[in-house]
Design a protein around this nucleic acid. Structure first.
Length: 332
DNA sequence: GAGAATGATTTCTT
DNA sequence: AAGAAATCATTCTC
């Protein structure tokens, strides 16, 4: 009770000193002359506001309505909003730090690159393709591993998207809810649209930090998956005997120029169930190793020369073209 | 288990 | 960009 005059006085003081809105309202009233009467008016309103909680619900409701309809209400509301705005801003100014979204961008880029976010490319990302190409080796095993990778990646993708959607939905729902609540409350307490906007911003930041966590853990999951599959690239497996045979046959039958064309590489790759780059690797290795130690490979060279010669004879005798190399034999 | 063989990767050259 | 050369990392063979 003792407080109220002080409070009224101080509010009044602020209103007069710092808030032209109320001052103006107070001055351009209908009668004009008696400032004392206006002060009394505002004092009454504040008194009513302060005591509203002591009243019964019905009384309060009626009082609330009366206050809402009061001609001074908009002015008072504006003043209170301004006071609040000033105090809140001075408090917030210090604690409001803009989180660096560089990390968020990095995460987004990575998720996009890994094919987790963004359009689905038949479940296969660049990483999956790389894993497939790198794993190479025995056809069936490789494809099993590859599909395993793809399945796991799409699982991660699916979880990521459902979670993201859930967060977005929750964020929207919560924002709408809070906005409605604040709008509703702004009828009885000083909440400016600006403040509602700021509150929405805060909610969005909170939710985006949750999203960031989701993105981070998704990235981690992809990295683990990726490392499991891509680290297996060094876990090479030797080509099967038949593939090595086919490659050697080509190599020794083209010993004078062991550089298969792109088409020849593709054909060899198909025959051996390996990729074109694996064919290139094989020929690269073979050329350099042969050149380094021709003597060591002499026996092998002779063997394949005999073999291709035999095949050629067989072909010419039977008039069949099956199994013949793409280029005529040229024994060294 | 040591060393050879081999497929893949990296770096340099053409 | 393709290939040579060096090197790495794994697998095979003894």
């Amino acid at each position: 009770m003792d407080d109220q005059p002080r409070l009224m006085h101080s509010t009044h003081g602020v209103g007069m000193a710092g808030h032209p809105g109320l001052a103006q309202h107070m001055q351009d009233g209908t009668g004009g002359a008696d400032g004392e009467g206006r002060k009394q008016d505002i004092g009454d309103i504040l008194q009513q506001i302060m005591t509203i909680t002591d009243q019964s619900l019905d009384e309060a409701q009626a009082r609330k309505h009366a206050l809402n309809c009061h001609r001074m209400k908009p002015a008072l509301f504006n003043v209170l909003c301004e006071i609040k705005e000033k105090t809140v801003l001075s408090i917030r100014g210090a604690q409001e730090e803009e989180p660096p979204d560089a990390q968020l961008m990095r995460l987004d880029n990575m998720l996009l690159a890994e094919g987790v976010s963004g359009p689905e490319k038949g479940g296969g990302s660049a990483a999956a393709a790389a894993a497939a190409a790198a794993a190479g080796g025995g056809g069936s095993d490789n494809s099993v591993e590859h599909s395993d990778y793809r399945a796991k990646l799409s699982q991660i993708r699916q979880i990521y998207h459902t979670e993201l959607e859930k967060y977005e939905q929750a964020c929207n729902e919560f924002t709408t809810h809070v906005m409605n609540l604040l709008r509703e409350q702004s009828r009885t307490r000083p909440i400016s649209p600006k403040e509602i906007e700021r509150m929405v911003g805060i909610i969005h930041r909170k939710f985006s930090s949750i999203q960031m966590q989701l993105k981070q853990s998704t990235c981690e999951a992809v990295m683990i998956l990726r490392s499991r599959f891509l680290d297996a690239r060094r876990k090479r497996r030797n080509f099967n005997k038949q593939a090595t045979e086919i490659l050697n046959e080509y190599f020794y039958s083209h010993l004078s120029n062991p550089y298969p064309s792109e088409e020849a590489k593709e054909e060899l790759g198909k025959k051996c169930s390996i990729t074109v780059s694996q064919v290139s690797n094989w020929f690269g290795n073979k050329r350099i190793r042969y050149k380094k130690n021709i003597g060591k490979f002499q026996e092998e060279a002779n063997m394949y020369a005999a073999k291709t010669a035999a095949t050629a004879t067989n072909v010419s005798t039977h008039g069949s073209q099956a199994n013949s190399p793409s280029t005529p034999n040229s024994p060294c």
